[in-house]
Amino acid sequence: MKPPVAYRQYHPKWHRTRVSTFWWSRKWSYLKFMLRELSSVFVAFYVVILLLQLHALRGGPDAYQGFQDWLRNPLLVILNGISFLFVLFHAVTWFNLTPKAMAVRLRGKRLPDVLVAAPNYVAWLAVSALVVFLLTRQG
């Protein structure tokens, strides 16, 4: 067989496999990685909403009412719903990551990961409960 054109003696051509377009579909952990990358779009969207909300707040009660009506648009509700899910996803990622980032030790022994992550969830529940309490009291 004739050597391929690319080969020069003592200079072998290395083969580089191209990363396939759908590599992230192979594994749940890869998919999660891609979802987190994708989430940035929605987080950006939410930031814009927040800015708009502030702007409306400055415009007085009428403007704010208009903004709220606009928010009721089903498309916006869906988008906000998706953003919420992504933010939730991020929160869980970060909570679970705490024990990795901080190896907490008690009397020389490393605490099990669950124990380090747990306070995050407890704090989260507490804050959520407080928010719910404040909201229901007003209403």
Partner: peptide
């Protein structure tokens, strides 16, 4: 298999 002297692709 990939032998750069013989073949262009694995």
């Amino acid at each position: 298999r990939y032998r750069p002297e013989e073949e262009g692709e694995p």
